[in-house]
Design a protein around this nucleic acid. Structure first.
Lengths: 218, 218
DNA sequence: CGGGCACTTGAGGACGTTCAAGGAGGGTGG
DNA sequence: CCACCCTCCTTGAACGTCCTCAAGTGCCCG
């Protein structure tokens, strides 16, 4: 039932997995629905089983920051309050747990508790990368970073085929740019022979070394 | 010895505090020294007693992102690897603990463990605000945000006197701007009657409502 | 087939950066 | 104690990157 590749279930024994399974509920969303919304109590923890989503923050004047793209195995709701909304990009399936149940089980099973710690740590590491990106990087560097990020995190992605589950607007709001700038950056990267696009949402990295150099923080 | 106002020591009993004190070492730094540096193992946890510091990430081409300003009561080193360096802005005193000692004690004392969780949560909340700031906000909005942030976090700061412990460059690198833009933004805010500067590093907010409106995310 | 949405492309403009100069404050050595 | 220097800050001018506005294309779905 549960995928041990997920950071939450990693290295858990059968007993732990069964306990978790007992308290989980499958939650299924279609495209463009909200799993949870900004500034409400976080009653549940979700672990994504399939599909893709975004964590976003929207202000009253319409500006929107995509905080993270979310993929299978990712965990949502480990904080007491949601500081963001989570919206599905594709049909989405997730396992829902009561937050206090997770807290309870993590006291009992130290491996679960360790997993939770390492998830939080990874979230922080990702956010630090993104802070650097938004504060310091140029538009085309940001796009390269996103491509490599997706290459790492998207299930089934390979250098010669990255299927983007999000629109250009989602990419723009993640990168702190406009749709037009993202589009132009992609065009430019294509012109320079660094990437190729077979379809609108299918990309290939043809010059991984250069793309990595542009994306990297060092 | 320890200040219960710090998020780490909050609501701890005398026994807990004594156990911690037993395992702590005072670490004193002068101006512009490193408490810890990027990409090294985090052996120690530090809690700031006095002074101010920055958490920063520097790339090989010289670009620098200030990830956070650090003030008394703040805790550093709760992750296994430092993804950043911490540099003192002023003379700095901190209490140093071995990381595994903290982990050990937090298993024993649940209030300590709770404190650690809430610290991590607060760190994430701050970072989310900053992501929105860097991705979406205009220069003068960023400066307003920083002023309010300092008003909340700087010990001794009040609406009519905020003593900035950092240079304009630190502010710029925190806000994803250049020194010149920060300087111009401050000049503009002064001209509009929103703030006043008595000295270079002393500011007063004269129109809190407007500043708040500009800084806010909603 | 038509309409709507997403994407691309172009032109113009704004915001922030870069480059450059000048001023103010603090520390050091004469 | 003053002169000098260095660092930090401000201000100006020119430039560039990215944004805004606008038009046009392609694709999906009804």
């Amino acid at each position: 039932m549960f995928d041990r590749n997920s950071a939450l279930f990693k290295a858990l024994g059968d007993e732990e997995l069964e306990s978790l399974a007992k308290h989980s509920r499958l939650k299924v969303l279609s495209k463009h629905q909200y799993l949870c919304t900004q500034y409400t109590d976080a009653q549940y923890v979700y672990i994504i089983a399939s599909g893709a989503a975004v964590a976003e923050r929207v202000s009253s004047d319409g500006r929107r920051q995509v905080l993270s793209f979310i993929f299978p195995g990712d965990v949502i709701g480990l904080t007491y309050h949601h500081e963001f909304s989570v919206k599905s990009l594709t049909p989405l399936t997730s396992h829902q747990f009561r937050q206090n149940k997770i807290a309870e089980l993590s006291e009992k099973y130290s491996s679960l508790s360790d997993n939770l710690s390492s998830i939080r740590e990874r979230v922080i590491a990702l956010m630090l990368d993104q802070l650097y990106l938004l504060g310091q990087k140029k538009a085309h560097e940001r796009v390269c970073f996103l491509l490599l990020h997706l290459l790492k995190r998207l299930p089934g992605a390979s250098v010669d085929n990255i299927e983007l589950p999000m629109t250009r607007l989602d990419m723009a709001d993640y990168l702190g740019l406009t749709v037009e700038t993202v589009s132009r950056s992609i065009t430019k990267l294509k012109a320079e022979g660094l990437i190729e696009t077979t379809e609108l949402h299918s990309m290939a990295i043809t010059d991984l070394e250069t793309v990595t150099k542009l994306a990297d923080i060092n």
